[in-house]
Nucleic acid binder design. Structure first.
Lengths: 328, 328
DNA sequence: CTGAAAGCGCTTACAG
DNA sequence: CTGAAAGCGCTTACAG
C-alpha cells in the first residue's frame, strides 16, 4: 500500500524495479486515483478559488483559463467565484466564505482596501492579483504597472503625440502605478503635464471611457492627440467618443489600451495595448499558494512579484489605411 | 448519525423537534459538510465538466459563469475544459478523459460529428450545447436557432434591407438551422435568394467575417444593404470590412450578429444581435444531467429542449447619429 | 525500501 | 423516527 502510494505520489526511495512494476500495473488496470479519497485523507479539499469581478470579462476569462490549466497539473480544481466589483463580496471572499472549504485563494482585488486585509481573520493561503498594492501584508503578483504605463505613453510620444490624455487616472494621486507611469513618461519627454487631460472615471467600463472623453471633446480644452486608457474596455469607449466627435484614430488621436483582450484585435481600428503575461501570472500565483501550503525550507514571507508584459502595437497608433483615408 | 445526515440532506421523516435541534447545533458549531468525504461515500466526484472551445470567448465565459453559479446550488463543482475547436479534443472530452473522474459532462459541440457520438463508449451523463443537432442519441439544449436567425433577418427586412448577405452560411445546406432561418425569412418576405450573398467561412472568427465580406465588396456582385452574421465576432469582422470599404453601418448596410457578447454594446456602432437566455441554458443543462444521474420516475430518454432568445436592437440596424452623419 | 493498520468525514443499509 | 457499524479509497505514522 505504502509503496504504491509512494510511486503514485512520486516520492523517492522506491526500488527501481518495484516502481516499474507498480507503474505497469497502473497502466494495465487503468488506475486513476480517487481525488475525493485523497483529499479526505490529506485533510484538504483540492479546491482553490479564483475570485474575479466577472468571468465574462475576457481579461479574467483568459486568466482563469491559464489558471485552470496550470492548476490541473498540480491536482487542483479551480472554483471560480464572481464578486461583481463589490467590496463586500471581495471581503467575504478573502474570509473564505464559500459553500465548500478551499485550500487557497487567488483574488483579483478591485475594491478591496488595506483595512480589509488587516481585519482578515481567515488563515487560508491568499494571493492577490491586480494593480493595487497592499504593502507587505500579503502575497501579490502583477506586472510592473508603472513601467507598463510608461511604455504605453512613451509609445504615443514616439508616434508624435504631444497632448496625451489619460483616461482612468484615479483621484488618489500617490498610489496609482499607472498614473505614475504616465507622469514619468511625460516628464522624461519634457512634456508639460496638462491636468485637464487627466480624466478620472468611476469604473473601468466602456461607458465611462466614452463619457469622459466626450466631455473633454465638448469642453473648451484643446483636443488631445493621444489617449492612454487604463483598460482596453475604457479605450474602446474612448475610441467611440472620438469617432462620434468626428475624430479619426489614429490620424487625429492615437489610442493605447491595457490588457490585450481579444476584442483589441477585432475592433476597427485594432487597438494597441499592453499585454500582461497571463501564463506567468497564473504560474506565480500558484507557486505562491504552494509556498504557503508547504512552508518547508525557508519561511513563507509575503512577497511581491512582477511578471513580464509586452506592448502590442496595432492600428490605433500606427496606420489605418483604406478606411479613413478614403472617407476623408 | 443517520438523523443528522437526514437533516443535512433534507430527507423527510425527521421529527420536527429533532430537526430544529440539529440545525441549531449546525449553526452554533459552524458545521459545513466535507464534500470530499461526502463524495467518497457516495461514490461520486462532485465534479461536472464544462467543455468549451475557449473560455476567453465571452459567450462561453458568460455561459460558464451561469453554470458555475447554478451548479453551486446543487453542490457541484464545474471543471472547465478547453478544446480549442479541435474535434479530437472534443472526442476525448465526451469519452470522459479527464485527469479526475467526473459525474457529468456539458459539452459545447463545435466540431463533433454524429459518428463520434455513435462510437462513444463512456457512460458518463452527457448534455450537448450548441446549434448543431445530433438526432435523438443524446440530450441537447439550445435556442431555436432557425427561429432566431429568422427573427434577425426579418428585422433587417423590416429596416428596409433587400440584399441581405449571410456571413457564415455553412456549405452543408440541409442541417444548418441558422441558414434555414435566413432562407425562411427571405421567402416569407418574397425576396429572391441571391446565392452570391451566402458567404461560407472556415471558422467563426472576426478575421473570417472580414475576409469574406471584403471579397464580396471587391467582387462584381452588387453591394449588400444588410448583413446577417452567425456570431457577433463574425459580425465585428464584417463591420470592419464594410468600414474599410467606405460603407457606413447602418446607413449603407445594416448588420445583425448572434450571441450578444459584451463587445456588442461596446463597439461603434453598437451591434444588434440575438441574445440567447444563458441562464435558462445553464439551468436546463444541469437538470438534464440530474435526470440522467437519478433515473428515478420515468425513464431518462435523451431529449432536446429549447430555451428562449431575444433580439437586442442596437445602432448597427437603427440610427447612428453624430458620427457618420458628421463624417459625410 | 515495504507492509499492516488506523483514520480522514461522510453515507447507507440494517436493526430497533 | 433514530442509533451503531461498516465502508468509500486514499494517506500516513509505525514497524520491520
Amino acid at each position: 500500500m505504502k509503496t504504491v502510494s509512494n510511486v503514485i505520489n512520486g516520492y523517492a526511495h522506491v526500488a527501481e524495479g518495484t516502481k516499474e512494476r507498480v507503474l505497469a500495473a497502473v497502466e494495465t488496470v487503468g488506475y486513476r486515483p480517487n481525488l475525493s479519497a485523497r483529499n479526505l485523507a490529506r485533510g484538504r479539499s483540492g479546491v482553490i478559488a479564483l475570485v474575479v469581478p466577472r468571468l465574462e470579462m475576457p481579461y479574467f476569462a483568459g486568466l482563469a483559463g491559464q489558471l485552470i490549466e496550470q492548476a490541473e497539473a498540480r491536482g487542483w480544481f479551480v472554483l471560480i467565484h464572481e464578486t461583481g466589483w463589490d467590496r463586500m463580496a471581495e471581503r467575504a471572499a478573502i474570509e473564505g466564505q464559500f459553500p465548500q472549504r478551499i485550500d487557497g485563494l487567488i483574488v483579483s482585488a478591485q475594491q478591496l482596501e488595506r483595512a480589509d486585509l488587516d481585519q482578515r481573520t481567515a488563515t487560508t493561503p491568499l494571493v492577490l492579483l491586480g494593480e493595487r498594492s497592499f504593502g507587505d501584508a500579503v502575497h501579490h503578483v502583477a506586472i510592473d504597472n508603472t513601467a507598463a504605463a510608461r511604455t504605453a505613453v512613451e509609445h504615443l510620444i514616439e508616434r508624435g503625440c504631444r497632448r496625451i490624455a489619460m483616461v482612468g487616472a484615479s483621484d488618489a494621486a500617490a498610489d496609482d502605478p499607472r498614473r505614475r507611469g504616465y507622469l514619468e513618461a511625460l516628464e522624461a519627454a519634457g512634456l508639460e503635464l496638462q491636468p485637464d487631460l487627466m480624466l478620472p472615471i468611476r469604473a473601468n467600463s466602456g461607458e465611462e471611457g466614452e463619457r469622459v472623453v466626450r466631455e473633454l471633446l465638448e469642453s473648451d480644452v484643446a483636443l488631445p492627440d493621444g489617449v492612454f486608457a487604463v483598460t482596453d474596455w475604457v479605450a474602446l469607449g474612448a475610441m467611440r467618443a472620438l469617432h462620434l466627435h468626428g475624430l479619426r484614430v489614429p490620424d487625429d488621436a492615437a489610442v493605447v489600451g491595457f490588457d490585450d483582450i481579444p476584442y483589441a484585435r477585432a475592433v476597427t481600428p485594432s487597438l494597441t495595448t499592453i499585454a500582461p503575461d497571463r501564463a506567468a501570472l497564473a504560474e506565480v500565483a500558484l507557486r505562491m499558494l504552494e509556498t504557503q501550503l508547504n512552508p518547508a525550507g525557508g519561511l513563507a514571507e509575503p512577497v511581491h512579484q512582477t511578471v513580464p508584459f509586452e506592448l502590442v502595437v496595432r492600428e490605433s497608433t500606427t496606420s489605418f489605411g483604406p478606411p479613413q483615408s478614403r472617407a476623408h
